[in-house]
């Protein structure tokens, strides 16, 4: 067992950043779910219409989520070794 490696405890700055970006990517749908339920909680006075404001809010959140996903997809590096598996597929 001489060759057994100790798992790394601390990473270099850039790899550390990559891991946190991945955490953000994982959290994104949860943030989305929460934000999109908010209009259901809005107080509503008698006869007041919330339709236009809800519409603007939902589309606003939507665009925000898309922008975040776009940023993440550019910022997260593709981990080549992990993708290179399954030898028979890589011809």
């Amino acid at each position: 067992m001489a060759l057994k490696l100790k798992p790394l405890q601390f990473l270099a700055r850039s790899s550390y950043r990559q891991r946190r970006l991945r955490d953000v990517a994982g959290m994104l749908p949860i943030i989305g779910i929460l934000l999109l339920q908010v209009p259901l909680l809005w107080p509503r006075a008698e006869g007041q219409s919330l339709t236009t404001s809800a519409m603007i809010y939902v589309f606003g959140v939507w665009i925000l989520l898309i922008a975040l996903a776009l940023y993440l997809s550019k910022a997260i590096r593709n981990d080549a070794p992990e993708l290179g598996e399954g030898q028979e597929d890589v011809d």
Binding site: G26, L28, P29, I30, G32, L36, A54, V58, L65
Partner: peptide, 21 residues
Amino acid sequence: SGLEYLTVYLGPTIVMLGWWW
């Protein structure tokens, strides 16, 4: 039924945002 139609698109949006999962 007003804005309810949006749910049909919001579901897949969330799934694709969470593609990592």
